[in-house]
Amino acid sequence: MDSNLLKVFLAVAYTKSISLGAKELNFTQSNVTLRIKQLEKSLGYELFHRTNRGVVLTIEGEKLYPLAVDIIKKIEDATLKMKNLDYQELLKIGSTQSNATIRLPKFIQKLNDDYADMKLDFVLDSTLNLIDRVLDYKVDIAFVSGDPSHKDIEILNIFKEDIVLVEAKDKVPQNTIFSYKKGCKNCMLLEKYLIKKEKKSYKTAALENYELILECVNSGYGVALFSRQIVEKFGYIEKLQLTNMSFNLDTYLICRKDSIPMVSNYLKKM
């Protein structure tokens, strides 16, 4: 059912006149007559009785009138809401565990201060899985490690990371690379780096607990690649040997190019 035809119907019903309805809508009388006929044809009922003094609603017209009022009101309310909406009611956020540890709490606090009515939904996963979630429209934005370099992805912001190789100070580490989660980009980059540097293979272990990983490294059971902020947060800065990495593993805040959130400008300036 065409809402524009319903608007014409309501104007004629309210004024009880084709000519007055046309005047109210700033249409020609013939245009209004044509549209009423189109509506009657689509519904299969006559909606007005034509009289010498104007028009009167038929029984079918009387039944349609309150329905048409409700439909038009809902359309106008929806249009007004969308025109005045400057942020999403729900923002679905994906993040790696490292970002959830060092960045997400402050990010959430700032969003809550600036957009108190906006609801947030979260998912924690590896970088590769988060990129897939963004591409599948399952999250609106995601904090991922490294440049995703994908044609369908828009980069909203970049957060610089101080990435360090973490080793025990006084022990020769075993050939194990610790990561938080399987498929972690940190683990993949570190493995590639160590194999090239030391010409030997490493096994990997996902422990899903940063403090446990740091203590395993401290005890000589292996090595890990972390943001310096995480090492500092858990109090291991002075306990461990830290080596700065030459490669870049900054955090990228991303979304789909064809699904950019309404708060994108805000996110770009954070």
Results as ranks from 00 to 15, higher is better:
F48V: 06
Y45F: 15
Y14Q: 06
K41S: 15
K41M: 11
E46H: 08
G21F: 06
I18C: 06
Y14I: 05
Q38P: 01
I36H: 01
E40M: 07
L34D: 07
V32L: 00
L10A: 10
Q29P: 03
S30T: 12
L47N: 10
T28F: 01
G44T: 06
G44Y: 07
A13W: 02
L47E: 11
V12Q: 05
L10F: 08
F27H: 03
H49A: 02
R35W: 07
R50S: 15
K41W: 04
N26C: 05
E40Q: 11
G44S: 11
S30G: 11
R50V: 14
Q38C: 09
E40N: 11
V12P: 07
T28A: 04
F27N: 02
E24I: 08
K23Q: 12
I36V: 15
V12C: 09
L43C: 09
N31Y: 10
K16W: 06
R35T: 12
F9A: 13
A22G: 07
S17L: 11
K37T: 13
S30F: 04
K23R: 08
I18Y: 14
E24V: 11
T15Q: 14
T28N: 05
L25V: 15
F48W: 04
I18T: 10
L25C: 14
E40R: 04
L10C: 07
Y14T: 11
T33M: 05
A13P: 02
L34P: 00
L34N: 10
Q29D: 08
Q29M: 04
L34Y: 10
L47A: 15
G44L: 07
R50H: 15
L39R: 00
H49M: 00
V32F: 00
F48D: 05
G21D: 02
A13E: 02
I18H: 09
A13L: 03
L20I: 07
S30Y: 05
S42T: 04
E24N: 13
T15N: 12
H49Q: 02
K23M: 12
I18F: 15
L39H: 01
L20G: 14
S19N: 12
L47I: 08
T15C: 13
A13F: 07
K41Q: 14
Y45H: 13
K37W: 06
I36R: 00
N31K: 06
V32C: 02
G21K: 03
L43Q: 04
I36Y: 00
A22D: 04
G44C: 10
L34G: 05
K23I: 13
H49G: 00
L43E: 10
A11Q: 09
S42H: 03
L20H: 14
V32W: 00
N26V: 07
